[in-house]
């Protein structure tokens, strides 16, 4: 049981390391944010799942923590992306600008 938990925690830490490498290596703000928020959300959730496997009596508090992460992390990434758009303008090369009307 606990070895499964350690495998989950290892995967989570791997995702966190990958997200920090992406945060350092990516060229501009939006791609950096992509690496920094999505991968770190998945990494934190995997760490929480591993902790539930190691210590099953704490499942309610830990799943509450995961719920909190699932609310806050995508919300803050969305706000960061929107404020980046408002400050630096249009960065995309594909020519599709969905936020043009509701600035």
């Amino acid at each position: 049981m606990s070895s499964i938990g350690f495998i989950f925690i290892f995967l989570g830490i791997l995702f966190l390391i990958l997200s920090s490498i992406g945060l350092l290596r990516m060229p501009d703000t939006l791609t950096r944010m992509h690496a920094g928020t999505k991968a770190s959300t998945l990494g934190s959730l995997l760490v929480i799942v591993g902790a539930i496997f190691i210590e099953p009596t704490l499942w309610f508090k830990l799943s509450l923590l995961g719920f909190f992460l699932l609310i806050t992390n995508p919300l803050s990434s969305s706000i960061l992306a929107r404020s980046t758009y408002l400050k630096f303008g249009f960065l995309n090369k594909s020519g599709i600008d969905d936020l043009k009307d509701n600035k």
Binding site: I71, T72, L75, S78, I79, R82, S83
Partner: peptide, 10 residues
């Protein structure tokens, strides 16, 4: 004064 519907709901 930053207004955003998603932020308000969250």
């Amino acid at each position: 004064s930053y207004q955003n519907t998603l932020l308000k709901i969250g």
